[in-house]
Computed example of a mutant assay.
Amino acid sequence: MGAILPPMTVEKFGGAVLRTPLGFEAMTSIIRARQSEPCVVVVSAVGSTTRSLAAAAAHSVRGEGGEASAQLDTIATVHADLAGSISADPIRRRQLTHALTEILDVARRLCRSVAVTRQCSSRTLDRIMATGEDLARTLAAAALQEAGIAISEVDARRLIMTDEQYGAARPLKEPTRRRVQHLLDTQGATWVTQGFVASTESGETTTMGRESSNLSASLLASCLDAKSITIWTDVAGVQTADPMICPSANTVRHLQYDQARIAASYGLKLLYPTMIDPAEICGIPIRIASALAPDGNGTLIDAEPAAAPVMITTVDNGELTAVTVLFVTLDESLRAIMHVLESLGSSRADGIDITTHMHDRAATIVVPTPLAPFVVRALHSELCQESA
């Protein structure tokens, strides 16, 4: 490599942050405060863009071209509105809107082809699904430049190499490391790239699976021997339960890597199993924090000893939801679960399955989805009030 640079940080901004102009302002403020050290900015698709792209592809397979076009039109409107908030200069705004239109036009052409053939290969679907992150990278780069921050925009396809398992591609560590470290010599101190997206050795677009933008951040950090990873979201760190259904949930201040991995495997929001390994192998701490309150404590994940807090996770499987109690003795968790089932009454509790996982100190019950919020709140009330 060339000149020795200060240790880098990786700053990943989720789609929940970037769905509003305020979120882009928060991002620029955070990166401006970090201009004294090199960093990589990784962004996810804005808001519900990924779901809209999946819906457009599904409509296209059914030959519903009009419905697919409507989904893409909605994406275009959302991004055009964000572009308008990013740049007040008419010329720069027009240039940004044109760049966004060109990116989205690729997805439009692919969807039109799918609507004709009624077939969408996993390779074609990856090209469609990558559009959201491509749009977000373009907006993020423009927002930072508009704020006077010197950046280098780098397509993640040039950074991360994967195998050819389209839709769930696995990163190839050594080729990726070589790519990343080569570009480090030729790019500026602040990079902007997108998560989720990568490419094969031959240059075909791949995606690395659901919520893999965090994996992108962790993987890039490991290749760069970064000193830290921050996952910027719209909540103040990992919570003891989903705050959308349990308002009394507390912020978890500290987790060990293994605790985070276990919690992620049982569906804890904000954490995904694949993001932990690259950081743990290199000893890189991960911080989960709110972009709207960047000076708050958030959640720190590292190798230091941490008392595991009691946590309640949920995985919605449609009609049924798995509710899991983590990091408490099985006697305590089963006692709390039985209390909750008793409060439901025999008619609603009949047939509810309980599964225990001794190694993970976990107990799972599968309940009808409409009952899940009550069950989570009741379990949290019994087990979590003193744990955060």
Rank of each mutant, 00 (worst) to 15 (best):
A264T: 07
A26N: 03
V366F: 11
S52A: 14
V46P: 01
D258F: 02
T28Q: 07
E280P: 01
L320F: 10
L110V: 06
F196L: 08
T251R: 00
V367L: 08
F374C: 06
Q187R: 07
I160H: 11
S122L: 14
Y272F: 13
L125Y: 12
S265K: 02
E67Q: 11
S347K: 14
C246S: 10
I276T: 06
D331F: 12
T324D: 00
V197I: 15
I91D: 12
A55Q: 08
A143W: 02
R112A: 03
I337Y: 08
T162Q: 07
F327Q: 00
E64F: 07
V192A: 11
T124Y: 12
I312D: 00
L220P: 01
Q239M: 14
A54Q: 13
I262G: 00
P7D: 02
S228L: 10
E37A: 11
I4E: 15
L371W: 04
I4S: 03
S216C: 12
M208Q: 05
E146V: 14
L215E: 03
T206P: 05
P368V: 00
G63P: 02
T299F: 10
D316L: 11
M161S: 15
A68S: 10
A45K: 06
A140C: 09
G2S: 13
T369Y: 08
G66R: 03
G209F: 04
M244A: 11
T138L: 02
M8E: 03
I160G: 10
L383N: 01
L268E: 05
S60N: 14
A45N: 06
S60G: 08
T321N: 08
C223V: 12
Y166T: 00
D105M: 09
D234I: 07
I276H: 03
T50M: 02
G65W: 00
A372F: 03
T329N: 11
S152K: 03
M208R: 06
